[in-house]
């Protein structure tokens, strides 16, 4: 990805990074509440897919293959988080 492209996408990247930062922070703040942590895990996974769909739709390059990539990455992330949270 070129620098120019990166800065072009920056207005979309910043909210995404913000969502992940808030998600991580919520994990720390609610470290004693497993149900809430499970909710956060689902929320960030859904946010990742949603962000991808909106971002690529706005850039007119949304395709099935790209959608699938976001879904699968989110599924891997969610599975990893749940596998640990459910054992806490």
């Amino acid at each position: 990805m070129s620098k120019r492209k990166f800065f072009q996408h920056l207005p979309h990247y910043l909210p995404l990074v913000g969502i992940y930062f808030v998600g991580t922070l919520a994990f720390v703040l609610f470290s004693y509440d497993r149900q809430f942590q499970i909710g956060i895990a689902f929320a960030v996974a859904v946010a990742h897919v949603t962000w991808g769909l909106i971002h690529h739709y706005l850039h007119h390059d949304l395709s099935f293959e790209i959608m699938l990539e976001y879904f699968v990455i989110s599924a891997v992330g969610l599975t990893v988080l749940l596998s640990v949270i459910l054992r806490t």
Binding site: Y20, G52, I66, Y70, I73
Partner: peptide, 15 residues
């Protein structure tokens, strides 16, 4: 054609 790698790296970083 590809999804945004930076988005995936951010997601994995959070995890």
């Amino acid at each position: 054609p590809s999804s945004r790698i930076f988005a995936h790296i951010s997601f994995l970083g959070m995890i």
